[in-house]
Design a protein around this nucleic acid. Structure first.
Lengths: 184, 184
DNA sequence: TAGTGCATGTAATGCGTTACATGATTTC
DNA sequence: GAAATCATGTAACGCATTACATGCACTA
């Protein structure tokens, strides 16, 4: 028996619909924008994007038109009303996947197996990682042109998160160092 | 031409080595511990753990012995000196993968496509998620028995992170609500 | 004219989860 | 004696990344 497929969304569906809700784009452009914006909390690759664009067009959620540049073929997609509806339904969705794979935390977790200096070094490296990301995001925020408020909100989240993370590492390093002194 | 494989580590290698550095365990127990500790930042499944245990034993990094409980077979693994060395080398490693897949942030990012109340609802839902995780981790922290200091450090990280995250959501909700009032 | 960027697309690869199979032991 | 838990193990599945193939356009 064939299953009914209401929309059959997958991991890239919301990214494609969402980005097209902000502006019409080609598959190539979608990938570029993802790499400069959502990549840090939601990645997507060509191998997902192009098949998904065809699927969503067949489902009537997006509409593509050929807009060649000279002899170079180019297909621009825009969101249809049905697509906007699907996006909003996803926004209202209940279940929410959140997954983290953080090797830096894993190293910290097992740092008791090595001398204390190694653990302190891990904390310092983690702090530097936060500070680096902070630099990237801050330069993004300083770029001219104002984003929609929730896009800007998420950028602010990233900045605040890395600020917090760097501070936390700093404080814990001081804490451990202080504990070592009194024990010595 | 056959490649030289120095250790051929994969994603579960450090978890297995690390957990066995704390205590000898069976594959089943490793899975249990992972699900109660590292799962939130580094997951592992049976399909990875059991093959990896055999692989690591063949490589001499861990040693298994049969310790049946009555007629139920049971194989306990412990770290060898070579395994401890491999763990420390991983701890000193330079490249560090950090990946996040956070559908809640993705929804926020695209919330401009819907009425403002929906975006505020997303922030509130995110805050509740943080508060829920906070409850889980706090009850973990209150459990008797003291963990090694870096294990405890990572638990503190989780608690501090969710405290920060909940506070951030709260503040941004207030911020947006204030902005709406003055605009009205 | 060589190299980079725009643009589309797919095949192969690798990996992790899910689901299932098996069987013993403990608990209610 | 039924259900839950301990314990091991693997096959199938789904999914995402990587890598490659193709070809045009721009620029140094």
């Amino acid at each position: 028996m064939e299953e009914q497929r209401p929309a059959e969304r997958n991991a890239v569906t919301p990214v494609v619909l969402g980005l097209l809700s902000l502006a019409p784009r080609t598959g190539y452009e979608i990938k570029q924008v993802v790499d400069r914006s959502t990549r840090n909390f939601w990645a997507a690759s060509y191998g997902q994007i192009y098949p998904e664009l065809r699927r969503l067009e067949a489902a009537g959620l997006i509409a593509g038109q050929d807009v060649p540049t000279g002899g170079r073929r180019r297909r621009l997609f825009r969101l249809t009303p049905a697509g906007r509806q699907a996006l909003i339904e996803w926004l209202m969705g209940r279940e929410t996947t959140i997954e983290l794979r953080d090797e830096s935390l894993l190293r910290l977790f097992f740092a008791d197996a090595a001398p204390l200096e190694l653990g302190l070094g891990l904390l310092e490296a983690r702090q530097r990682g936060h500070e680096y990301q902070l630099g990237v995001l801050r330069s993004l925020a300083e770029l001219p042109g104002n984003d929609p408020q929730f896009v800007e909100l998420v950028l602010r989240w990233g900045i605040a998160f890395h600020e917090w993370g760097a501070r936390w590492c700093q404080e814990e390093r001081a804490r451990i160092a202080a504990g070592t002194e009194s024990a010595a």
